[in-house]
């Protein structure tokens, strides 16, 4: 072992060669605020809501592991589809809030939605200075809908 102490050259010099090579390599860095990285289409960035598709079935709120979805709705009487028929009842969404301070981005809500009202968008720039602003309401969630990308092509 003392031999290594005396002549510590081959391994140490090799290591210094690696760092010297790295010194002259271009750094693989994305200069974030100037240049934005484009996330992959499936990235779970933020959940967007299609209000028209939502039927207030509450499945997402029930399946959410940390109960961060708040839904309120009421039933509205609609005129019957044909004259003389029974008046239809349609559920209307009053409140649909997702608290991103609680959300753990598991995606179960998107998965269980039977009417395809929820989608993942890869947007990630919605940090806030106040935690209360992380509660995104119906309108804010609808805004994200425009950013939902097309699904990627599949292998084989």
């Amino acid at each position: 072992m003392s031999k290594n102490v005396a002549f510590p050259f081959p391994g140490l010099v090799k290591g210094m060669w690696v760092t010297l090579k790295a010194l002259f390599k271009k750094a693989p860095v994305t200069m974030y605020p100037d240049v934005q990285e484009i996330p992959v289409p499936r990235a779970r960035g933020v959940i967007s809501l299609d209000v028209d598709a939502c039927t207030v079935c509450m499945l997402c709120a029930r399946e959410c592991p940390d109960w961060c979805i708040y839904i309120e709705g009421h039933k509205e009487e609609q005129p019957p589809s044909k004259p003389g028929g029974k008046p239809r009842v349609r559920a209307t969404l009053d409140r649909f809030d997702i608290d991103y301070g609680l959300c753990m981005y598991c995606g179960i809500c998107v998965e269980v939605c039977p009417f395809d009202a929820l989608f993942w968008s890869p947007e990630y720039e919605y940090s806030e200075t106040d935690v209360i602003n992380l509660l995104h309401n119906k309108e804010r969630l609808t805004e994200w809908l425009a950013t939902v990308p097309e699904p990627p092509a599949l292998e084989r």
Partner: peptide, 13 residues
């Protein structure tokens, strides 16, 4: 994505 039978069903293959 989405268990539904409607529009944007995305295969996760």
């Amino acid at each position: 994505y989405g268990g539904g039978s409607t529009t944007k069903k995305q295969s996760m293959d």
